[in-house]
Computed example of a mutant assay.
Amino acid sequence: MSTTATPTSPSRTRPQRERVPFWDNARFVCIALVVAGHAIQRLTYESDNALVVYLFIYAFHMPAFAIISGYFSKSGPPTARQMQRVITDILLPYVIMETIWTLLQFAASGTLAVNPTTPSWTLWFLLALGIFRLVLPYLALVRWPLLWAIVFSVGVGYLSNVDSTFSLSRAIGILPFFVLGWKLKEWGIVDRWRLVDRQTVPVRAAGAAVLVGWGSVLVAFIDVWREMDLRFWFFYDDSYEGLGEDQWWAGAVRLLLIALAILLTAAVFVLVPRHETWMTAFGQSTMYVYLLHSFVLWPIRESGVIGGDNSSFTWLLGLLFASVAITVLLASPVVRRVTRPLIEPKPSWIFRPAQETKTGPLRIGPSRTDPTGARRR
Rank of each mutant, 00 (worst) to 15 (best):
V335S: 07
S69L: 08
S312L: 08
Q199A: 09
L180E: 10
M279I: 11
Q247R: 15
T44Q: 02
T165E: 13
P371Q: 02
G207E: 14
G173T: 02
R368N: 15
V156H: 15
Q355Y: 07
K185L: 03
A261Q: 08
D163S: 01
G188F: 03
L141H: 14
A261D: 05
A252C: 11
S47D: 06
G207Y: 11
F295L: 04
G244V: 06
K183W: 14
L316H: 05
I40C: 01
M97F: 08
S332G: 06
W187K: 12
C30V: 13
E276Q: 10
A108I: 00
T79W: 14
T280E: 04
I350G: 01
I68W: 13
S160L: 08
L92A: 05
A374K: 06
P7W: 01
A206M: 14
L329A: 12
T357K: 13
P145K: 02
W148L: 13
L175D: 05
R377I: 11
R143L: 03
D24I: 00
A171Q: 07
L218Y: 14
F106P: 04
V86T: 14
A267I: 07
Y71E: 09
S153M: 05
D48H: 11
E98R: 04
L168Q: 04
E245D: 15
S109C: 04
T369G: 01
E241G: 15
R194N: 02
K74V: 12
V154I: 15
F221Y: 04
G244T: 11
R133N: 11
L103D: 00
V142I: 15
T327F: 07
S153I: 01
L260E: 04
I68L: 10
K346T: 06
I364M: 09
F235A: 07
G283A: 01
S75P: 06
L127E: 08
I67F: 02
W225S: 06
F232K: 13
A250T: 14
A149T: 02
G373M: 11
L257K: 05
L103N: 02
R27Y: 03
S2P: 07
R204V: 09
L330R: 10
L291H: 08
T111A: 05
